[in-house]
């Protein structure tokens, strides 16, 4: 094979490989991703058997620590107002968990409420860059 043709073959092979890998990447990311929803969206869309990544703020007066490490609480939209979603969660609770704080938890629909996957809770590190006035300072 002459060098020019060899280079051409090399180019085609590597481009095909790159395309295949890129395609796989795109396909798997869409199929593996959990939809991230706000409480309002979740109430409108949730179907049993699907995992959702729920993002919202903890509603005041909704937090109940039950025995056996089960934690019940409700989440509302970050913007405030709107309906809230009851979540029953077990497992590790991040330290910043508190009324009014924003958190992300993976949930499945169960009856009227939602069950959080154990140890899936992430609270957002409250340190950074809150443009709105800090609720505690007012």
């Amino acid at each position: 094979m002459n060098p020019a043709r060899k280079r051409q073959v090399r180019l085609i092979v590597s481009l095909t490989l790159a395309l295949a890998l890129g395609g796989g990447l795109i396909y798997t990311s869409f199929s593996a991703a959990d939809p991230a929803l706000s409480p309002t969206q979740l109430l409108a869309k949730a179907r049993p058997g699907v995992s959702y990544e729920l993002t919202g703020t903890v509603v005041a007066g909704s937090v109940r620590h039950l025995g056996d490490g089960v934690l019940d609480f409700r989440l509302a939209d970050r913007a405030g107002g709107g309906p809230s979603v009851p979540v029953s969660y077990s497992g590790a609770v991040p330290d910043p968990f508190r009324v009014g704080r924003e958190l992300i938890v993976t949930v499945n629909k169960s009856g009227e409420g939602f069950v959080g996957q154990p140890n899936s809770m992430i609270t957002k590190c409250p340190s950074k860059y809150v443009a709105a006035p800090n609720p505690k300072s007012t």
Binding site: L25, S29, F30, A32, A33, D34, P35, A36, L37, Q41
Partner: peptide
């Protein structure tokens, strides 16, 4: 590129499907 795609995937997913979705550590 893999990390870039996974990181900005919530934005891509929102643009394509209308809902934000994110990929986790297993992906």
């Amino acid at each position: 590129f893999v990390i870039f795609w996974g990181t900005i995937f919530p934005l891509i997913s929102e643009a394509v499907t209308g809902t934000t979705a994110s990929v986790g550590p297993p992906w």
